[in-house]
Write a protein that binds this DNA or RNA. Structure first.
Length: 462
DNA sequence: TCTGGGGTCCTAGGACCC
DNA sequence: TCTGGGGTCCTAGGACCC
């Protein structure tokens, strides 16, 4: 079993495509006041910046880092290339995310020894580097668990092969937190019982663990600690739910405003249901209050739907049941209980008259909100009507909200100067650096943010 | 350090059915 | 009618992952 893990993936793609950022701290994630870090380059990690850290804290730790919003279509493209290379090893490839996958070599390479696995994996790593310009760490072992732990052991740009007879010695001294499924809460609870290492966990009383963590988690944990992991590689799982959510720049208290936001989220969900050819029976809304307490409310319909009107109706009805007066920081809408679209659903939906206040024919496909890639280009979202403090009141404040829609890191072209990327924007201006993956470090130029010669562009070809 | 967005899986209680 | 046992569906919440 192999586990593949692209190193500092989002940040590495940015450094690849932006010569001026190579060797520099780069942080990809939400760039607004409430953003968090998705990926930090290794140079940024040296400042103590890591995933899930609030971006404001990252700015405090390294004000000179490049803070980028992320270009998901570029990441997706690279991911597809890597997954295609993985498929050359075996048809049993299970993508975990854009930057991770498991590969089961069992059927295609029976009876491979450690040296054989090494040769195979090194060949793969070389091909990834040649076709994408990125480094990938690979772990190999008798199970998903061991492969995953191995890939993490000597990151970045490393291969670690763990033969079956060595897994015990590898696992025993590791902290329990390294076992997938042991997060902050479980780790704390185990520590209170004096269980700190994997060896401690392996020796723990099973009945005790089940009492503490429930049937599935309790016994599963101890099995993992003993190196028992029967999980197979599952190549293509069907999605079980589709959802969209948004954290607002400022807490919302106005119910009408929330209903409006809910509608936009519904449209995003509906588009994705349609492109996936699925409909669902259960509509869920998620609401996070000012104090971070989170509520979910769901309603199961008699028939599956993919219709934005029906989903919106259910979502707003659910919203009605909740008190929003104290302030809502996040709203989400989801659909679960998915089934394949039937011909009947399709016909019913085509017949459906547009609801009042909805653009006619704005069924799936009619994505609003402008962006070429929905939700991708600007996580943390530009708040069009935001009441953000403009400019430089805070010491480490993010750039003023990009009313123009330019997001840091975004690919652009200028009629005169050619391809480049947005380095920053605010107060009616955009600064662009004109460089690409194969050019030397480029020069900066500043434009009015409504300059007609400046256009959004697709990701550059590496 | 005031905490994203997209998911998965598990648990527990109550309704309902036979 | 003073009360079984099993199964399924639904809802809500929470831990966890990348």
């Amino acid at each position: 079993m192999l586990h593949l893990d692209l190193d500092a993936f989002f940040a590495a793609v940015e450094q690849r495509d932006k010569p001026s950022l190579r060797g520099k701290p780069v942080v990809v994630g939400g760039t607004g006041w409430r953003g968090v870090v998705a990926t930090a380059s290794y140079e940024a990690r040296a400042f103590g910046i890591g995933s899930a850290m609030p971006t404001m804290e990252a700015r405090r730790r390294c004000p000179n880092a490049a803070f980028l919003a992320g270009r998901f279509s570029a990441y997706r493209r690279v991911s597809e290339q890597v997954m295609a290379l993985a498929h050359e090893l075996s048809p049993l490839v299970e993508p975990v995310s854009l930057d991770e996958a498991y590969v089961d070599l069992g059927p295609t390479h029976p009876g491979l020894d450690a040296a054989g696995v090494s040769a195979l994996a090194e060949g793969f790593r070389a091909r990834v580097r040649a076709t994408t310009g990125l480094t990938v760490s690979v772990g190999a072992g008798p199970s998903k668990l061991v492969a995953k732990i191995a890939s993490d052991l000597r990151k970045p740009d490393a291969l670690v092969v763990v033969p079956a007879d060595e897994q015990r010695d590898l696992l025993a001294p590791l902290p329990v937190r390294r076992i997938p499924g042991v997060g902050a809460v479980t780790g704390e609870r185990l520590a209170r019982f004096g269980i700190r290492t994997v060896a401690d966990l392996a020796a723990a009383d099973e009945a005790e663990l089940v009492r503490m963590f429930g049937k599935a988690h309790g016994s599963g944990l101890r099995a993992y600690a003993r190196g028992i992991d029967p999980r197979p590689v599952v190549p293509e799982r069907d999605a079980k739910s589709v959802s969209a959510e948004e954290t607002f720049a400022v807490d919302l208290t106005d119910r009408r405003e929330l209903v409006e936001r809910a509608r936009r989220l519904v449209d995003r969900v509906a588009v994705r249901l349609a492109t996936g050819g699925v409909s669902g029976r259960t509509v869920t809304i998620k609401l996070r209050r000012y104090d971070f307490t989170t509520l979910n409310r769901s309603r199961t319909l008699p028939q599956p739907t993919a219709s934005p009107r029906e989903i919106a109706q259910a979502a707003t009805a659910l919203l009605e049941t909740l008190d929003v007066a104290d302030g809502v920081r996040l709203l989400g809408v989801g659909v679960s209980g998915l089934t394949e679209y039937t011909q009947q659903d399709l016909l019913a939906e085509l017949d459906e008259p547009a609801a009042p206040g909805e653009e006619p024919g704005a069924e799936p496909g009619g994505a609003e909100s402008g962006g070429a890639e929905p939700g991708g280009a600007e996580p943390g979202g530009a708040e069009p009507g935001g009441i953000l403090p403009q400019g430089s009141t805070a010491p480490y404040g993010p750039p003023a909200p990009a009313r123009s829609g330019w997001s840091p890191g975004q690919d652009v072209t200028h009629d005169e100067h050619g391809p480049g990327w947005v380095q920053g924007s605010g107060v009616g201006r955009v600064t662009v650096r004109f460089e690409g993956p194969r050019t030397p470090v480029g020069r900066i130029r500043t434009f009015r943010d409504d300059d007609p010669a400046l256009h959004p562009a697709g990701p550059p070809v590496w």
